[in-house]
């Protein structure tokens, strides 16, 4: 009964993940694609929970569905991207390349399924080692994987500093230019452009900060 329920849930979320993944590629409207991608992330989180890794599931939702995709949706809404039209395909060689790459991906997935078989852990199996729990992840991060963890931290710190530097330089120089144009007398144009650039730069730190 329980295994049957587990299989039913697995089938449900697997179908949701694959269906949403196909929708990401097929949809012509970028916002629909983004929403489908959120669906993929949520279905994946459900899979992590069924593999007894609740921490990874929660982080998946917070980071991907809650932060990164919000920014993607935000940018699509801000730029008001139009629906892509059906244009004649120019880069025709991409079609066979895509088929080839998809075949490689399928072979890889098949190999993983063949060599690993069923996952040794299930959420109902209490004898499984608590690898997915918060404390065990924390302990292994700060003992066994300390070096990769610290390298990643430094990488993220560099990304933050770089983002802030880029955003500041752009805003200062553009504001200066806008002020200079205003002084020389080209009034109307300078005001609008200066206002817009200042506005778009205000958003930049928000975007980069939340990704990191």
């Amino acid at each position: 009964m329980e295994t049957l329920l587990l299989y039913a849930l697995f089938g449900l979320f697997a179908a949701l993940a694959i269906g949403c993944a196909i929708a990401v590629v097929v949809q012509r409207n970028p916002l629909y694609s983004a929403i489908s991608l959120i669906g993929v992330f949520i279905a994946l989180a459900a899979h992590y929970i069924m593999l007894a890794a609740p921490f990874i599931a929660a982080v998946q939702i917070i980071v991907y569905a809650g932060a990164i995709m919000v920014l993607v949706v935000f940018v699509i809404m801000l730029l008001n991207v139009e629906e892509a039209e059906h244009r004649p395909a120019r880069l025709r060689f991409l079609v066979p390349t895509a088929i080839l790459l998809a075949a490689v991906l399928f072979a890889e997935a098949a190999f993983v399924i063949y060599s690993v078989g069923d996952s040794p852990y299930s959420s109902l199996d209490t004898s499984a080692p608590p690898v997915g729990l918060t404390s065990s992840i924390g302990i292994s991060l700060f003992t066994e994987y300390l070096l990769p963890f610290e390298i990643t931290s430094i990488l993220l710190l560099m990304a933050i500093v770089g983002a802030i530097t880029l955003a500041r330089q752009a805003s200062i120089s553009e504001l200066r230019r806008a002020a200079a144009v205003t002084i020389t007398g080209d009034n109307a144009e300078a005001e609008t452009s200066g206002f817009q650039s200042a506005k778009s730069n205000e958003i930049t730190p928000v975007r980069t900060g939340a990704i990191n």
Partner: peptide
């Protein structure tokens, strides 16, 4: 459950 607080944050952010 183990990650109740993270669950709250995740659902809120959705």
């Amino acid at each position: 459950f183990d990650v109740a607080l993270l669950y709250v944050l995740g659902v809120t952010s959705v």
